[in-house]
């Protein structure tokens, strides 16, 4: 009989698999199409320019998420006025 621990571990492994499949294995074009089919706007940043731990600051059109602000679908922000 499958115990609660096995179900919990199975759930964690399945969630990790889905995340890796969505974020790494699935081509960006397929991901964008699936998001559109689900009625969501395209991601603010493309995977290709997310860079590595080396610290790519995201040079794509949208740029990085600004401080204390939200990123609009186009990648903009409502960053505060620094004046």
């Amino acid at each position: 009989m499958i115990g609660l621990e096995s179900i919990l571990v199975g759930f964690i492994v399945a969630a990790a698999f889905l995340w890796v499949a969505w974020s790494i294995l699935l081509p960006a074009s397929v991901r964008v199409r699936l998001r559109r089919l689900a009625g969501h706007p395209p991601e603010a940043q493309s995977r290709a320019s997310s860079g590595c731990a080396g610290g790519c600051c995201g040079c794509d059109a949208a740029g990085r998420r600004p401080l204390r602000s939200h990123v609009t679908p186009e990648g903009g922000s409502d960053g505060r006025c620094a004046g």
Partner: peptide
């Protein structure tokens, strides 16, 4: 209020960035 990379040499920005 963004934190885009700035540095003291030409050619740091190679793509447009949009903010509000």
């Amino acid at each position: 209020g963004a934190r885009q990379k700035v540095a003291n040499y030409p050619g740091v920005t190679v793509e447009r960035k949009v903010g509000e």
